[in-house]
């Protein structure tokens, strides 16, 4: 067979078609929307008015209905339109790592060994990936431990933003980068704790103690009570979470970022 071939054009494929790191304009809109909805869902005790049709205890349940819808929309946008198969496989595997690490923390005061992974994931693969990683890690972990409940959508949104924040940190390398990551770890660990406690405050302590949410009191009074309640009950947990996150970032970030960025190169994502 000595057929003369037409000179064929060269196929250049420097990267696997779609980058996981890019966050489309639409996904950005969705993320902003999720942030708004999430904030309302977490801060509901602030605007709760006595005499409304819903009991304060049922409020988080209502949000547990709405948040999954919002999450479904944003996660579908992030994974369906912005991610190729490599991104999905990476997302699944990193979520598995988180889901395996998470039970190690339960029972040990406030140990939360997954935040560092979410932050580094967001850092290496971009904010959209970070959000999806946070949400899916929490979901997979809940399925593995059979811990699905009204708290799950809250955890998914909050963990999503932890990962997202890791992706939005300013460009830096070396020690500055490490300091930035650790700082975000510290901040996000505390904010995560405060938001979760705030949303489930009426559940945590019941309606009739002096630390309880009082629907009739004004915002300032309720916030004051909440701060005291939080200091008395969750400070240790929040501090523990923040310290483990910072410690793990300082210890592992250099090595892990190297591993993750190598993956980003090999998968031909645009690394940050």
């Amino acid at each position: 067979m000595t057929r003369v071939l037409d000179p064929l054009p060269r196929t250049t494929l420097d990267s696997g078609a779609v980058s996981a790191a890019a966050v489309s304009m639409r996904a950005r809109v969705m993320l902003v929307l999720t942030a708004v909805v999430g904030l309302i869902a977490f801060a509901w005790p602030l605007f709760f008015t006595p005499g409304s049709a819903v009991d304060p205890l049922q409020a988080p349940l209502l949000f547990a209905l709405v948040l999954p819808l919002v999450l479904a929309v944003v996660v579908s946008e992030l994974t369906g339109n912005g991610m190729d198969v490599k991104g999905l496989a990476l997302l699944g595997v990193l979520s598995a790592v988180g889901a395996v690490l998470r039970p190690i923390g339960t029972g040990t005061a406030g140990m939360e060994p997954i935040f560092f992974l979410l932050i580094l994931g967001g850092r290496a693969f971009g904010p959209g990936f970070g959000f999806a990683q946070g949400a899916i890690t929490m979901f997979a972990s809940a399925l593995l431990t059979a811990g699905v409940g009204p708290w799950l959508p809250y955890q998914m949104v909050a963990a999503g933003f932890v990962g997202l924040g890791g992706g939005f940190l300013p460009r830096a390398r070396g020690r500055v980068e490490l300091a930035l990551l650790a700082a975000w770890g510290l901040v996000s660990a505390f904010v995560y704790g405060w938001l979760m406690d705030f949303a489930f405050w009426p559940f945590g302590i019941g309606p009739s103690t002096q630390f309880s949410f009082d629907p009739h009191a004004d915002i300032a009074a309720n916030l004051h009570t909440f701060v005291l309640y939080n200091l008395a009950t969750s400070m240790g947990w929040n501090l523990g979470r923040a310290l483990t996150t910072v410690a793990l970032i300082v210890l592992l970030a250099p090595g892990l970022l190297h591993v993750l960025r190598r993956a980003a190169r090999r998968a031909a994502f645009a690394p940050r």
Binding site: R10, T11, A17
Partner: peptide
């Protein structure tokens, strides 16, 4: 090269379908 990246010249055909 679709998955791994890289520059390919020439053509691979399987059952009449080109990987190009």
């Amino acid at each position: 090269p679709h998955f791994t990246g890289g520059v390919m010249a020439g053509e691979v055909t399987v059952a009449g379908r080109s990987t190009r």
